[in-house]
Nucleic acid binder design. Structure first.
Lengths: 163, 163
DNA sequence: AGTGAAAGCCTTATGTA
DNA sequence: TACATAAGGCTTTCACT
């Protein structure tokens, strides 16, 4: 389950199409790939079973949901031991403001991507949920001016495959 | 298009359900929300039109695609002027290794989330695509041990609404 | 805006090669 | 494993409220 998976041209084309629009029908996939719709169904099911496709997620606009300000919080957790960092991550993940949490190499142990309503909300979040905790040694807050999601993720060296 | 949108209980329930499984059928949404399937269709179409729903995206496992190593690159671009940073962002976004780019406050102008095959690949990426460029003054690389996506994003103060 | 029903398309199980 | 087909379910439209 941890290893890389062998994908052929059809798999790659299907993934590329579904990344553009995850609601593409099997008929559309069939037309675009040249194989039968029922085969596309099999392929997608296999990609899900093998763990390549983790899920179909809705992408929402935070600003439209009243969370117009986003930030990255670099957090040092000290001492950096399992019995402290496990519950720390669990609590942070459960916050409605959290979008993603990264455990990193380097002096800052965690990076937390948060979406809040405004600066007041951010200050409250930092003070009440981070610096107030004994295991949190340091928090550095950086505001996000702008962000970009990048193109479809595909295996290395497949830039032109299947086109 | 930039302002927050008014969402009622039905909208919130639909968003919550679709975030758990973006492939939920309108019939399932109808059953869960208590309104007709055709109404759910209208609601989802409205949420898309108003920009709350940006898209339906496929979530893939980078490791299964031969990108078993992820990192965050903090980048200083100097001088930090539009005519330099615009092309810089465009080039970085176009890299197949890039997953996301953030423009931030603070001394590090950009944070780039990348997924690569291995350490050799990461070294190549940093040397060839970042430090080799004249406008890139500094790059700091942090490896990602582990990462977590967080729970559904909803408007502040709606934790219990509609349940 | 929401509803219910009807028409048509899509998904998906199955048999075959 | 891929295909074609068919049955059933889902989406989507529409007239009505």
């Amino acid at each position: 389950m941890t290893d890389s998976v062998v994908l052929d041209t059809v798999d790659l084309r299907i993934l590329r199409l579904l990344q553009n629009d995850a609601r593409a029908t099997y008929r559309e996939l069939a037309e675009a790939t040249g194989v039968a719709a029922s085969t596309c169904l099999d392929r997608v099911a296999r990609l899900r079973r093998s763990g390549v496709i983790l899920g179909h997620r809705l992408e929402l606009d935070p600003a439209k949901l009243g969370r117009g300000l986003q930030a990255l919080l670099s957090v040092q957790v000290r001492p950096h031991r399992r019995e402290l960092v496990g519950p720390f991550v669990d609590r942070i993940r459960a916050l409605p403001e959290s979008r993603a949490v990264f455990h990193l190499t380097g002096p800052d142990d965690y990076l937390v991507h948060v979406a809040v309503a405004d600066m007041t909300d951010l200050q409250r979040l930092v003070l009440d949920e981070f610096t107030s905790r004994r295991e949190v040694a340091r928090v550095e807050t950086r505001l996000i001016f702008q962000q970009w999601e990048c193109g479809p993720m595909l295996p290395p060296g497949t830039a032109g495959t299947g086109r």
